[in-house]
Design a protein around this nucleic acid. Structure first.
Length: 234
DNA sequence: GACCAGGCACATC
DNA sequence: GATGTGCATGGT
């Protein structure tokens, strides 16, 4: 299924080596990404819902609205009128769906066993916590994993549209692999480190935004040293 | 005006 | 299991 690449005379017949080489190239180009932008764990969790299929700038506007109105705490948001919440998060798009998703998440977050405590949430083992998050309507695998990794520091690799697009263009995975298959590919071939998973995904997003949109702008792509991969760098 | 953005749920076959 | 569709704002 997978083909591995050559870079100059170096043959990357080992996915572990190649994944690290890719990270190295991205890190040298973009620098450490310091993800996730957000002042608190709760803000990161909210941002994970708001950013679904949405430009981050628009998420920032929505978060700013909530902060300006001083309704940014979990309990304030829980009691906030649904229509009012919709109005405030409007800039992030899909505002009616997202307002409901935020309410659903808050109900989970404020109820036992978490009862609004980040510390209690962190103490729940990753696998059952992930299942709990996925039971919430509006939280799918990427949102759940973003919460686990970026808000709670759990060691899970986040897959998104850029990851699928970039690594299938690299010829490393098929375009249609399931979320879990892609996640396993990274988790089984990278050193088991939450910090690495954190920055690797952030690097992928940066690469995606700048070079690997649906119409790729590959001229100065930092992965160019891997040009003997199946990437089309034209 | 078209295309895109750090997805997800649901319907239908 | 795979494929299609609605959701919606703001930037390029």
């Amino acid at each position: 299924m997978r083909k591995f690449c050559e870079s100059g005379k170096k043959r990357w017949d080992n996915p572990r080596e190649l994944l690290l080489r890719i990270y190295q190239l991205l890190y040298s180009h973009f620098g450490f990404r310091h993800w996730w932008p957000g002042e608190s764990e709760f803000e990161i969790m909210l941002g994970a819902i708001l950013t679904q299929n949405t430009n981050w700038k628009n998420v920032e506007r929505a978060i700013k609205n909530l902060k300006d109105k001083k309704v940014f705490s979990p309990k304030q948001l829980m009691t906030l009128d649904l229509n009012k919440l919709e109005e405030l998060i409007k800039p992030s798009g899909y505002y009616r769906q997202k307002a409901r998703r935020i309410k659903e998440f808050l109900e989970f977050f404020l109820s036992p066993p978490i009862s609004g405590s980040i510390e209690k949430m962190k103490k729940i083992p990753t696998a059952p916590l992930r299942r709990m998050l996925l039971e919430i309507k509006g939280i799918g695998p990427e949102t759940a994993d973003s919460i686990l990794l970026y808000a709670l520091g759990k060691r899970v690799f986040v897959i998104d549209a850029y990851t699928r697009r970039i690594f299938s263009r690299l010829g490393l995975v098929s375009e249609k692999e399931s979320y879990e298959q892609l996640q396993n590919f990274f988790e089984q071939n990278l050193p088991k480190s939450a910090k690495l998973y954190n920055d690797y995904h952030a690097q992928i997003v940066e690469l995606g935004k700048n070079y690997c949109a649906k119409k790729p702008a590959c001229q100065n792509c930092p992965l160019k040293p891997l040009k003997r991969c199946q990437i089309n760098f034209d």
